[in-house]
């Protein structure tokens, strides 16, 4: 699905990612954990193509394509989806209108005709049912006045609508209470299948109780310093990040 080799990136001359190597196969769920400031959000932004960051070295292959050569919108149209840590508000634009535009832009890119309005509404209705979304959410302005939980659920709903191949979730659990966390996780689990891959970024282990990963990686100072299976997350839960930091410092 995606293969990241020796990825380095900086912002304003400051190096944040210092050689990331990661290989994700179709259907796999990888979790990235790490202390604040480790570079988790930077990794997701660089993969999605945010212009603020400069890639200084490394390469990323996304389903046979050189990811770093693609514009952010083309990465999305190729099937990459980023569930934002802080989804932005777009006043006056309904989710319905936003998603219709997004889907039709993607279809255009793939040489398909735009979706008929009625087909689109039917499609959206079925996805709303599947994801147990409240009807009102789609007619309201995008993310405007949404609670933290609503915003995150809406990100997962967009994911369902756009049917991506590779999903990055940046701290989707942050700011959620336990009920909202359950709802969001249930949504994500519905979208898991043997083709679709996930990169789940989180600071806390608790999300991984609900979305059980195949692999867990620890990111620290812009490098993956430890990898393991789901049990690594449990270990971090008990021991915190300090022992990892010490291990890394000791090795230097």
């Amino acid at each position: 699905m995606i293969s990241i080799k020796n990825l380095h990136a900086s912002i304003e001359g400051k190096s944040i990612l210092n050689g990331i190597n990661l290989d994700i196969k179709p259907g796999e769920v990888h979790a990235i954990m790490g202390p604040n400031g480790a570079g988790k959000s930077t990794l997701s932004s660089v993969l999605a193509g945010r212009a603020d960051y400069t890639v200084t070295a490394g390469e990323v292959n996304f389903m046979g394509k050189d990811l770093l050569e693609l514009s952010p919108e083309d990465r999305a149209r190729e099937g990459m989806f980023l569930a934002f840590q802080y989804p932005v508000e777009i006043p006056g634009v309904s989710s319905t209108n936003f998603l219709k535009t997004a889907i039709n832009e993607k279809r255009k890119y793939h040489g398909q005709e735009p979706m008929e309005a009625t087909d689109f509404l039917k499609f959206m209705r079925s996805k709303m049912e599947e994801m147990e979304m409240d009807k009102s959410l789609t007619s309201r302005s995008l993310n405007e006045g949404f609670s933290g939980g609503e915003k995150k659920r809406n990100e997962v709903f967009q994911m369902a609508m756009l049917e991506p191949k590779f999903c990055i979730m940046d701290e989707t659990d942050s700011g959620l209470d336990i009920d909202a966390l359950r709802l969001v996780s249930a949504g994500v689990n519905k979208l898991r299948n043997s083709e679709r891959s996930f990169l789940v970024i989180t600071h806390y282990q608790r999300l991984l109780d609900y979305i059980v990963p195949d692999f867990v990686h620890v990111l620290y100072k812009g490098r993956i310093v430890k990898s393991g299976d789901a049990s690594l997350a449990k270990e971090l839960e008990v021991k915190g990040y300090d022992w990892i930091k010490q291990e890394v410092e000791a090795a230097v």
Binding site: G49, P72, E73, A76, F81, V88, V93, T101, A102, E105
Partner: peptide, 24 residues
């Protein structure tokens, strides 16, 4: 830029994004 990037990440290009945001 946040709004533009958000739209881009959903596959919506620059001109289309501006049009969407302005019409909203």
């Amino acid at each position: 830029e946040d709004q533009i990037f958000y739209c881009a990440q959903r596959g919506i290009g620059l001109e289309e994004a501006i049009s969407l945001i302005v019409n909203g």
